[in-house]
Design a binder for these strands. Structure first.
Lengths: 216, 216
DNA sequence: GTCTATAAACTGATAGAC
DNA sequence: GTCTATCAGTTTATAGAC
């Protein structure tokens, strides 16, 4: 087995398992078994479980950030930079970065959910090393996006803007993290199929509304 | 040491540690050491770690649900049942249920954050037994609240309402879970103190706006 | 680069003395 | 009700043969 294939298999298995159960609940043994590789392979290729966790994040965050930078560049060439278009950039960049090859739609939703679960756990689980890694590696694009979004809400007090930012992040991460089970609950109650598309359609305008100047 | 005191000390220590690190990352040894009780005390008083986790939840959810029922009863006696007043019930019930004795304000914020972190982890961490426990024990009040809130948004399509409900839950849990670190970040940038009150003031109207009929 | 074997530490839980 | 001692199982990580 070529080296790269083993590394990829480990990363694939770890991404799925971490997103499903969390970091602490997923042992290296479970990962290597699921990946069909030897137990020692994780320590040989990555050095430790912590570095593997970071590698899982890097593999998904790196293409996303590249894609987001490009989309923000393009957006700033035009003139209409409002909250909707900025949020649209983020979600489009996210969805675009999740497909490498020819991938079906349900697979994309699964990857989106996986990404959000990993991201949410980086905040909630005790993985200080992970938060530090993400900020130091990918803090740049994030800061750029924040500044752009902030410039669309000059009427909002800066402190209020920051709180609203976290409201938005929470709504997004929480919902998309559990999008399959929420969809299950909703479909049980309404016998309606494919409400996920509706959720995505609702999310951007709802989030945009949250950062619009307050006149409640 | 009286029995009840040991039980309380274990529950206190477990609440703090679970909220800080998560369930899987907190060992029974860590809990008993922090509580200053014997290692065997957890299994003697609770039977298992799982039941201890449920007990931690019950201790905080039970008074909250009682308080919420009472506040909803009182609200329904009047006539103005709108989204703001309903959300106000939830947050007021939550804050009221967190103070047993004469407790200072910063302690209340800590408890609020602890509650939200525990709640968030019940969703994200692999604790199926915990979700089942919560639904079976406290699903009643939750359902009542949902129905009341839904009746204030009859113009919204039911499916849209449910998605918005999860947006709201996510914004709340995520923000209040990390309210100390967010406040830290914000205070670093603005040299402004006590922005937490502002966050709470912003949260209810912002959430209410989210379930108001869409005219974006 | 992959394997087996094993080290060293930690986990939840329990039996039995006090 | 609390204690010590310990079990049986798991964890991450590594040394050394191939």
């Amino acid at each position: 087995m070529a080296q790269s294939e083993t590394v990829e298999r480990i990363l694939d298995a770890a991404s799925v398992l971490f997103a499903e159960r969390g970091y602490a609940e997923t042992s290296v043994r479970t990962i290597t078994t699921a990946a069909g590789v030897n137990l020692a392979a994780v320590n040989y290729h990555f050095g430790s479980k912590k570095i593997l966790i970071q590698a899982v994040f890097a593999r998904v965050l790196q293409p996303f950030c590249v894609e987001l930078e490009a989309k923000l560049d393009r957006l700033e060439l035009g003139e209409k930079v409002d909250a909707e278009s900025l949020l649209d950039c983020v979600f489009k960049a996210l969805l675009d970065s999740l497909i490498d090859k020819q991938q079906a739609e349900p697979e994309k939703v699964l990857r989106l959910q996986q990404f959000m679960r990993l991201l949410g756990m980086a905040y909630t689980q005790a993985q200080g090393h992970l938060r530090r890694f993400i900020v130091s590696e990918y803090g740049g694009v994030y800061g750029r996006f924040i500044q752009l979004l902030k410039s669309t809400a000059v009427a909002t007090k800066p402190i209020d803007f920051y709180w609203q930012l976290y409201f938005m992040l929470g709504a997004t991460v929480f919902t998309l993290s559990s999008i399959d089970s929420i969809q299950g609950i909703i479909e049980d109650n309404f016998a309606a199929a494919s409400s996920i598309d509706r959720a995505m359609d609702l999310l951007v305008p709802t989030l945009a509304k949250m950062v619009k100047p307050i006149d409640l």
